[in-house]
Structure formats: structure tokens, C-alpha cells
Amino acid sequence: MKVIFLKDVKGKGKKGEIKNVADGYARNFLFKQGLAIEATPANLKALE
């Protein structure tokens, strides 16, 4: 799953980066902790 990092995550990505991560890791950790959001077209446009 492609995500946009909202904060730096050690070993995974830095704020503003778009990367592929495992679906479960994204849903169960990154999204719940507020560290990333899904890289949807609307979210990508908002990032610009």
C-alpha cells in the first residue's frame, strides 16, 4: 500500500515521502499512530 508519511518513522521513511509499505503495517500502526495517510489521488493533490 502506498502511504504518505506525516512524520519521520525510523527505518521506514521521512515526513513528506511516499512509499510502499505492507498493508497491515499501514493500517495497524502508521494510520492509528497518525504517522501516515493513504496515498490516494486526493491526498497526493493536497500534499502539493
Rank of each mutant, 00 (worst) to 15 (best):
Q33Y: 15
N43Y: 06
K19F: 05
G34E: 05
G13D: 02
K15R: 12
F31M: 10
P41Q: 08
L6I: 12
V9F: 05
N20D: 13
G16N: 07
I4F: 08
A42K: 08
G24W: 15
E17D: 13
G34W: 05
V21P: 01
I4D: 00
Y25V: 08
I37V: 14
A22K: 12
K32W: 07
A22M: 10
G11F: 07
L30R: 00
F29E: 12
T40Y: 03
K32F: 08
E48R: 06
F29D: 08
R27N: 10
A39M: 06
P41G: 08
L44K: 04
M1W: 07
F5M: 04
I37P: 00
L35I: 08
G16Y: 08
I18K: 03
E48T: 11
E17R: 02
P41H: 11
K10P: 15
G34K: 09
N43H: 05
A42D: 13
L47D: 05
D8R: 06
G24I: 13
I4K: 03
I37T: 06
K15S: 07
K19Q: 09
A26F: 14
E48L: 13
V9Q: 01
V9S: 02
L35T: 03
A42L: 08
I18Q: 05
K14Q: 11
I37N: 03
L6E: 02
G34T: 03
K45M: 14
G34Y: 06
K19T: 09
N20M: 15
F31A: 02
I18W: 02
E38N: 04
A26H: 05
I37W: 06
F5K: 00
V3M: 04
N20R: 09
V3N: 00
E38W: 07
K2W: 15
L30S: 00
K14Y: 12
G11K: 05
A46R: 09
V9W: 04
K45V: 13
E48P: 06
G11I: 01
G16Q: 02
K14G: 06
R27M: 12
N20V: 15
K10I: 13
E17V: 04
K19M: 13
Y25Q: 06
R27F: 12
K10H: 12
F31G: 01
Y25G: 07
N43I: 09
A26R: 02
L30N: 00
D8G: 07
Y25R: 07
M1P: 04
K14D: 06
T40F: 03
V3I: 10
K15D: 02
K2S: 12
I18F: 04
D23N: 12
K10F: 13
L30K: 00
R27K: 14
I4Q: 02
G13M: 04
V9P: 01
K14W: 09
E48V: 11
L30Y: 05
F31V: 09
G11A: 05
I18A: 02
A46S: 10
K7Y: 11
K15G: 04
M1I: 15
D8A: 07
A46V: 10
A26E: 11
A36F: 01
G16D: 06
L47G: 05
A22G: 11
I4R: 02
N28K: 14
E48Q: 13
I4P: 00
I4Y: 10
K45T: 05
K14P: 01
N28F: 12
A42T: 11
K10M: 09
A46I: 12
A36Y: 01
V9N: 01
P41L: 13
E17A: 05
G34M: 08
K14M: 14
L44W: 03
T40G: 04
V9I: 09
K14T: 10
K10Y: 14
L6K: 02
L44G: 03
F5S: 00
A26D: 10
N43G: 04
N20L: 10
E38T: 06
Q33R: 15
G24S: 15
F29R: 07
G34R: 07
Y25L: 09
N28S: 09
L6G: 01
F29K: 09
P41N: 08
G13Y: 12
G13H: 13
E17I: 04
G13I: 06
D23P: 15
A26T: 09
N20W: 15
A36D: 00
K10G: 08
F31P: 00
Y25W: 08
Q33M: 15
K32N: 11
D23G: 13
K2G: 05
G13K: 01
A42W: 04
N20Q: 14
K19D: 03
K45Q: 14
K10S: 11
T40H: 04
G13P: 00
E38P: 10
V21D: 02
A22P: 13
G34P: 00
K19L: 10
K32V: 14
G34Q: 09
L47A: 08
G34L: 08
F5D: 00
V9E: 01
A22V: 09
L35H: 05
K32H: 09
A46D: 14
E38M: 10
K7P: 00
A42M: 07
L44S: 04
K19W: 07
K45L: 10
K45A: 12
Q33S: 10
A39G: 05
N28R: 10
A36V: 07
A46K: 12
L35Y: 11
N43L: 07
E48F: 12
K12M: 15
F29A: 06
A46T: 11
E48Y: 13
A26W: 12
G11E: 05
A22D: 15
N43W: 04
F29N: 07
K14I: 09
L44T: 06
V3P: 01
K12A: 15
K10V: 14
K7S: 12
I4V: 10
F5A: 00
L35Q: 04
K15N: 04
M1V: 14
A22F: 11
D23Y: 15
R27S: 08
R27P: 02
I37D: 02
K15V: 09
M1F: 09
N28W: 10
F5Q: 00
G24Q: 14
A46L: 13
V9R: 02
D23K: 14
K2E: 11
N20H: 15
K45H: 10
K15P: 05
K15Q: 09
A36R: 00
A39W: 07
K32T: 13
Y25P: 07
A22Q: 13
L47W: 15
E17L: 03
N20E: 15
Y25K: 08
G24H: 15
G24M: 13
Q33K: 14
A46W: 15
E17N: 04
F31R: 01
A46E: 11
Q33L: 15
N43T: 07
I37F: 03
A42Q: 10
